[in-house]
Structure formats: C-alpha cells, structure tokens
Design a protein around this nucleic acid. Structure first.
Lengths: 162, 162
DNA sequence: CCTGTCTAGTTCTATTTTAGAACCAAGCCA
DNA sequence: TGGCTTGGTTCTAAAATAGAACTAGACAGG
C-alpha cells in the first residue's frame, strides 16, 4: 500500500509532480530561492517537523534539485543549494505565486511580492504565447499522447525533445 | 496533529500550495484541462482510490477550482468543470510540463506533448520578462516581505493587487 | 580534559492520510 | 422485478505526518 508513484507516466506533468508534488517540497524550494541554505533555516522558516524536513531534503538531493556543499564559513554543517535542475523550477514558483496573489487573497489583503532586485519593480505576469506571439489560452491547446512505439531509430531525434 | 495549513501565510506560494499542493489535486486539474469531467473519467485515468478522489473533488469544488454542473446529456450524474479560477492554473501546469519534459525524461524517451489545437505545433516555453522585456532569472529577483501593517486606508488600493 | 552548547539530524509514539476493496444507493434497461 | 452502471461511502491496513525526545559531531570556555 505504498503511495502511488507516477515515475513511469508518459506525461511530463505527472513525472514532475512525482518529484515535487508533495506537501513540503515546493515550499522548501521556494525558501532555497529565497536564499535559505541550512537545515535550521528551512526548519524555522517552515515550522516543519525535523524528521520530515530531513527526508525531504534527502529526496531533493537524490533527485538532483538540491545539492549539498560545504559551507563557505568552514563550519561543520553543510549547505543545501539549488542545482540547475532546481533553479529551472523558477517559472513554476512564479506561476504559483501569481495565481495565489490573484485567487487566494482578499482584495487589499497584504502579501509578499516578487520584485526585480535592482529596480524594486513588481515582476510581470508569466507569458504563454502561440507561434505568432499571441497570448495562449488553455482552450487553444491539446495534449497529444505519445503513439504506441514512436521509437524513430537513429537519425537526429535530439531536436524533437528539446 | 493535523497536517499543517498555510492558509494564513502571507506568501502567495504557500497559500496556493495549501489548495493545490497535495499528491492528486494537480493531476485532477490536468485531466480537467484534458477534457475529463466525470468521476469515472478521473478515476480510471488516474487509478486513484475512489475515496480519495471523492474527497479531492469535494475540496476542489469547495475552493472554487471546479464546479459541479448538470451534464449536457441529461444523465443522472453531474460534471466537474474548471471555473475561471481553475482555468487560471494553466500556466502552472504548462510550467510543470515543460520542467518535466526537460528534467524527468531521458533524451529520446517518448512523452505526451502540448500542442496548439489548430496547427499541431508544440507550445513554446513560458516567458518571464523583466520590465524591459529581457528574460528574467531567479537571481535577478527577490521577495519583498510584507511590512508590519501596510494597510493604506482608502484611496485606490485596487490597482496594487491586480 | 570535562562540560555545555549549537547544529543537524534520527528515533519514537500518536494521529492522520492513503490505498484498496467492499459496500450502498439511485437511475436506467429489459 | 432484477441486473447493470454510475457515483459515491465505509472499512481496514499500511504509510506519512507532527511533535517531542534522543543522538552525534564540532566548537567554546574553564
């Protein structure tokens, strides 16, 4: 009776959620973007149980989203830093933030905001465009399931999945 | 010992995850974008336990992401449809999909893809730009925590949170 | 060296959540 | 009427979680 895994799914959304789709993981990643790097940073910021935090950090390191590095201050502990794979989650966090701002707060209710470091200006909305640069809505898209066995032996398949 | 809630957080990411941050919710929303609307659709697509699915659908209706409507075929059941709030999750799902495609598949491993319905072309990457239209990276941003009591009584606060 | 403290965990127990299957009720179908 | 499908609810066992207690290593003071 283990929790179901989507590791084998052909849907990229399912596989992504298999790694980052539980209760704490994206909050830990959020804090990592926010500059936190130590066990105690995350623990006090989130109020998460130590045991769970330990397990989550281990999982994030295992799947290559965080890496453990020796601290620059030479202390006995180590730091958890985002890898490139982890840093690539940024648009997802921005999307969550923008959706949350719009749909999870009363008008006028204060919340933290994401700004450009140099100018202090609010970050604009994520843009999703069609081929001609027009805004893209969900209804204009569809998911094309993978065919039974589209193996395409050999000749330049790299360009397809980029 | 209830699971921790982020309902009160001042961080929009935390509040968003409080609604959609559990194991199944975003997969249900994904399927809803994919055109599924009935209990049995979700159940057979996801292989989720009926009890959990029932609870999740109820939760999604409660928080306004799905709504229950009578079916167009006049049957006895009802359909679950995305509300505007639910449809606004589209960029997040696209972000998850794009991250998953890049980081959760071997090169050449087949996966479903998101295309424009009319042209069949792949959807391009989510864009996040700074004020002058340049691509924005995480390192160029920071989160500004809300001040102690930034109430700003009265005069046109609506524009601030839009 | 001995003690205390700080950090980063691990271990423990009680509670909650989940998976999976069995059960139930309402509507159709013949 | 009985059987089938749909859309759930209920039940049990296993897994995850919260919270607190415990451990281990580094360092600091005396």
């Amino acid at each position: 009776m283990k929790r179901k895994s989507m590791e084998e799914a052909e849907c990229p959304v399912a596989r992504a959620l298999d790694l980052i789709g539980d209760w704490w993981t994206l909050l830990i990643v959020r804090d990592a973007f926010d500059g936190m790097r130590r066990f105690s940073d995350f623990q006090s910021s989130l109020g998460i149980s130590r045991g769970i935090l330990s397990a989550r950090l281990k999982g994030l390191v295992d799947c290559g989203i965080l890496e453990m590095v020796p601290p620059e201050d030479g202390g006995a502990h180590h730091d958890y830093l985002l890898t490139a794979k982890g840093a690539a989650l940024f648009p997802i966090l921005v999307g969550l933030r923008q959706w949350g701002e719009t749909h999870c707060f009363e008008p006028g209710e204060p919340h933290s905001i994401l700004v450009e470091r140099t100018t202090g200006r609010r970050i604009g909305p994520l843009k999703l465009e069609d081929a001609s640069g027009q805004p893209l809505e969900a209804a204009m898209t569809e998911v094309r399931k993978v065919a039974a066995a589209p193996v395409r032996t050999g000749r330049k398949r790299a360009a397809q999945n980029a």
